[in-house]
């Protein structure tokens, strides 16, 4: 058993990473809850944003935390156009077809990245990359703190949008009752597209934060799509708070597994957590209790 400060360090760093995971999963959760479409390209979109951040850093010397703002806008527009111009045509097709369509998109993006950037890992080396905050015996990476702050801000903006704006309320209405949304004459095609845009924007922000924490390779996507999905299920489908809690749970459990067992046991533990949760609380941490 490692000494307490190590465990505390792992919990703190896991919490901070978990907040970024939460933001990533939030995008998937929103798209699934409203458009009823599992975005199998979610991890690929994040990878794409990470390459964007690497490119902006190398080409323009832009800090990833600045790239983040531009990435959110670019991905937001891209997501809107993708849903409005393309994915909306498939809304009434059978589920398995829509699933395959998203997997196809994911593979196209993944392979496109491989073609464009090659298989080697890339990273961003900012001047503060290796700095840390010292709190007594605790050492907290600066980048991890900044990444978590950015994720918290993005999440708060998203929550405010859904709570306070008419469009946000209408999107929640679509998730709540899709038939009711059509009965009320809501512009469903537009609202779906806004939702996908927001989902893509949040995963882009998460990607720009993640690029400081891990190296990026073209094959990163599928693992993170799955991770986002696990987080959403753990947190409870359709719950924003749930997605954040799920992110925290997975982040902390991964960090602790890395410390107490071995870093390669990370996924084993998070998926173990999923299996246990499916047994004892199938609706997830914050999911609705009703059946």
């Amino acid at each position: 058993m490692p000494a307490l400060p190590y465990v505390a360090n792992a919990v703190i760093s896991g919490t901070l990473t978990g907040i970024v995971y939460g933001l990533m999963a939030l995008g998937l959760s929103a798209i699934f809850g409203v458009v009823r479409q599992v975005n199998f390209a979610h991890g690929e979109l994040m990878t794409l944003a990470m390459y964007g951040a690497v490119g902006a850093f190398q080409g323009l010397a832009l800090d990833p935390f600045l790239t983040m703002i531009a990435a959110a806008m670019v991905f937001g527009v891209f997501g809107y156009v993708l849903q409005r111009g393309f994915l909306n045509r498939f809304i009434h097709r059978p589920e398995h077809l829509r699933m395959l369509l998203m997997i196809a998109l994911a593979i196209i993006i993944g392979n496109g990245l491989l073609l464009a950037f090659g298989p080697d890992a890339r990273s961003v080396q900012t001047s503060y990359q290796l700095d840390s905050f010292e709190l007594g015996p605790l050492l907290v990476d600066k980048v991890r703190v900044y990444a978590a702050i950015a994720a918290v801000v993005a999440t708060a903006l998203l929550a405010a949008f859904f709570r306070l704006t008419l469009t946000g309320k209408a999107i929640r209405a679509c998730a709540d009752n899709p038939i009711g949304a059509r009965v009320a004459g809501l512009p469903v095609a537009h609202l779906y597209a806004v939702t996908f845009g927001l989902g893509a924007a949040s995963v882009a922000v998460a990607g720009c934060a993640m690029v400081q924490l891990i190296d990026v390779t073209p094959g990163l996507g599928p693992g993170y799509t799955l991770l986002a999905f696990v987080i959403v299920i753990v947190g409870g489908l359709g719950s924003m708070v749930g997605a954040l809690l799920g992110g925290l749970a997975i982040g902390v459990s991964e960090a602790l597994a890395g410390l107490l067992i071995t870093p390669s046991a990370k996924s084993m533990v998070s998926f173990g957590l999923l299996v246990v949760l499916l047994l004892v609380r199938p609706q997830g941490l914050m999911g609705p209790g009703r059946r």
Partner: peptide, 18 residues
């Protein structure tokens, strides 16, 4: 076909999204 998890006020507001 109301929106069960939205408040009464939000249900009404959304109805005016035309």
């Amino acid at each position: 076909q109301v929106f069960p998890s939205l408040t009464v006020e939000d249900n009404l507001e959304v109805g005016a999204l035309l």
